[in-house]
Design a binder for these strands. Sequence first.
DNA 1: TCGTTTTTCTAGAACGATTTAGAAGAACGA
DNA 2: TCGTTCTTCTAAATCGTTCTAGAAAAACGA
Lengths: 345, 345
Amino acid sequence: MPGVTLKTVAKAVGVSPSTVSNAYNKPDQLSGALRERILATAQELGYAGPDASARALRSGKAGAVGVLFTDKLAYAFSDPYAVGFLAGLAEVAEEFATSLLLMPLSSTDIAGGSTAVQQAAIDAAAIFCVPGGHPALEILANRGIPAVSTDRGDHPDLSWVAIDETEAAAQLGEHLARLGHRDVVVLVDNAQAAGGRPVELTLDEVGYTDCELRIQGLQKAMPDARLRIVSGGHNAIASGLRGAEFALDSQHRPTAIVGLSDILALGALEAMKVRGLTPGRDLSLAGFDDIPAASAAGLTTVRQPIKDKGRAVGRILLDPATTERRLLMPTQLIVRSSSGPAPKH
Amino acid sequence: MPGVTLKTVAKAVGVSPSTVSNAYNKPDQLSGALRERILATAQELGYAGPDASARALRSGKAGAVGVLFTDKLAYAFSDPYAVGFLAGLAEVAEEFATSLLLMPLSSTDIAGGSTAVQQAAIDAAAIFCVPGGHPALEILANRGIPAVSTDRGDHPDLSWVAIDETEAAAQLGEHLARLGHRDVVVLVDNAQAAGGRPVELTLDEVGYTDCELRIQGLQKAMPDARLRIVSGGHNAIASGLRGAEFALDSQHRPTAIVGLSDILALGALEAMKVRGLTPGRDLSLAGFDDIPAASAAGLTTVRQPIKDKGRAVGRILLDPATTERRLLMPTQLIVRSSSGPAPKH
DNA sequence: TCGTTTTTCTAGAACGATTTAGAAGAACGA
DNA sequence: TCGTTCTTCTAAATCGTTCTAGAAAAACGA
């Protein structure tokens, strides 16, 4: 029962440990007959094959790619956008017989060093929407683990697969400007408001670079508009709902609300429903990402090819044939019924 | 740059490797001053902390829980039901600072032993909808890795968190029987039909135990009904669509279609749309799981608490305080507009 | 002051494999 | 027949930790 190892098998068969190892890893290094005999004996002894950790240590390959998510891991699964990314990444991982290691990013004790980012046995890492400058990124860099981010970073070593955030937002901004919108509230994901009370933020307080760029893109495309940044908490329907309520109940009511993710925009849609407001007529609403639910809800949004993004990250990490280290994916403005002309004052 | 290890640091500071190890893992085993000094030197040398594989090898703990999915990994993400499970599991994993290792289950070469199930460095495993008797399960058992399945297994060692499949299906069966349905097509996930051509199956060919139980439950609750089992491929919208088309175009057209997952039922809904059939009037439709899209589509279904299922699996795997090894979760019939009285002949 | 306990640190043996270099024997060509 | 090339297998070193004892020094109680 206890401790059946390579050595045990080797002794039982009467060969050296190296040979047993070869039986598993390099079948052409030994005669077929012997290999059969080794495998049979192993089976008989209840040996389940080379130990994963030992192999990883000696050979320096873990056979797994780490995935780092913003904030709570459980949280990532509530956003179809994140799930789509994962699906694309998983597709490539599967192709290369590599596992995906989802690492929780508990910010507590990150200095102490007992986090998953420190401990995880991985060969490479995919970084999904983690704000630049996050300590976890430094840890990865320190460990010498190649990483690909979904956000353009300024660090020269970092690879990324991203979109032109500014340009994408500008497309949407132009659309809204053309419709005559001058008062816009932008809903963002923000930890400050996670307690439950919505907050209004300055551009500097936003935190995520991609969000900042989107807001700048919007502003650039609608120079005459007044943009306010509001957050109702993390990236979730409920946060969008709260943020939109805050915006709708404020003194100066906007004529358009832009969620920096469809999830947030869908939350805002709920808030409008409660108040009996019709999207596209009483108030315009737009999102980002174009998740499946967006089309069902008639939400104007900026589509990004999320699954392809996941695939591309996977290829950079795993496929030696891929030489491109930085990729800009196309985006597309999808106009639906939730956006319409600004109501005349 | 090359090979900075515990030893390097130890030598630099002038202490033994054990002490450096303790500085990281057992801070109370050495004076604070020395610890500070060690950590500082490590930083200086660019040492990123103990190597994951080496630690895993020596201590016997990998800090990760494996997740095994039916079929393609990329595939799992297209089903909100699977995603919900993952979310619940991730929640608990996060609590215990444990990573989640998603393992591809490529059936090729499973005998050869080079699969993720063989190689993965994991302490425990969650098995999601993998049919009993699958070789991967045996491998896990062989490796001595504790596992929890989402299906009731007959193996005495196996833990599980499941639902009473028969009873859950019987609830739905009674509902349909009461509505007067006598001709029912059951849509199932099946690899045989993955090529694209829908097939009609016998109960024995279904493969998945949980599906078999559901069909038996349906039959039990509607003894007078004629049940036909049809598959349009794997668990996906498109498969449901193809399976339903096959059923609707067949000689003996059913008055009700039951998808053994909401995803399959939603596919059937598409097929009905194309043909201009109104669910609940021209044809009744029901599913399983109650994913978010089901309520939006007005789909009658059997709800199961999937996130709780994930959480429970996580607790059994990770929480020593949890002693229960087998759990039956409650289910609930959710009647919506997609089911109605069978049209009079 | 002297034994006893506590704190702080170390030596050396695992952990379970893979890898490198090379030995022994078989097969081969001329 | 002899030197050469394969094929098949092995010995020993290593991968980078953590663990088990136990030693040395410091603190303690009486």
